[in-house]
Structures are given as C-alpha cells and as structure tokens.
C-alpha cells in the first residue's frame, strides 16, 4: 500500500523493533509486520531475506539455528547490543522526522 521507497527505507527499522523484545525467525518477522500494519506493509521472503543478511553483516542482528522438539530447525534472529543502540537512535530520528514533517505540512498543529 505504501510507496516502495518508504517501505524500503523503514524496513530495517521495522525488523529491528520487532526482534527487540525477543528473537524471531525470518517468516515470523514478515508475518508480524503484516499483522501489526494491518496488511498495509507486506514483505515477501525474497525482499526480507536480503535485508536480514545486511543487518547481520552490520552486526545489528545475530542469527542462530534453533531446533525445537518435533520441528525442523529454524533460524532465529536477535538484536545485538550494537543493534539495540542503533534502534534507539533510529527511534529518536524517526520521532523527530515525523514531528518535523508535521510542522511543515500541518502548521496549525505544531
């Protein structure tokens, strides 16, 4: 639903925030984004997977294989300490960005 560029720019932010509370596997992350955005943001596996790889490259997240009884093993991703700091910074930037845009487009609400 949203502009492709908007989605692309916020993808990392979304992923990081969703695994802040607990580790999740790749498909779960995509489903959670879709669910919380009420279907307005959807990521296919082919789009989400490379982003996870990039985040892992930058040591913002760390993946590990987890095997549960009766299930095939899945790769879960967790937030690293560096990722935690990055997420906090991104939240701040995002809040300020939204505020600034609102100031411009809705000056009577500033």
């Amino acid at each position: 639903m949203f502009n492709r560029e908007l989605k692309k720019g916020s993808a990392e932010f979304l992923i990081l925030s969703l695994i802040e509370a607990r580790p999740r596997h790749g498909y779960d992350i995509g489903k959670l984004i879709e669910a919380r955005s009420k279907g307005r943001i959807q990521f296919r596996i082919g789009s989400l997977y490379p982003i996870l790889c990039r985040l892992e490259d930058r040591n913002l997240i760390a993946g590990r294989w987890v095997e549960k009884a009766g299930e095939r093993r899945r790769r879960f991703y967790r937030l690293t300490p560096v990722g935690r700091k990055y997420l906090a910074a991104q939240r701040g930037i995002w809040d300020e960005f939204v505020l600034t845009i609102n100031h411009v487009v809705r000056p009577d609400h500033a």
């Binding site: 296919r44 596996i45 082919g46 997977y49 490379p50 790889c53 892992e56 993946g63 590990r64």
Partner: peptide, 28 residues
C-alpha cells in the same frame, strides 16, 4: 514470495552471510 531468483542470489552473495554462513553456525 520469491520472484527474482538471480537478484536474490546476487544480494545474498554480496552479504557476508553468503560467504560466511558456516562461520555463524559454528560460532553459535
């Protein structure tokens, strides 16, 4: 879910994950 396999392959290869997935496994 995956339309463009070659693009995906290129993106994964570019990442360290593609190069060092075994390392992470062992590290874990």
């Amino acid at each position: 879910h995956i339309a463009d396999w070659s693009a995906l392959a290129k993106q994964v290869e570019r990442s360290r994950r593609g190069r060092e997935s075994a390392m992470s496994t062992l590290q874990n």
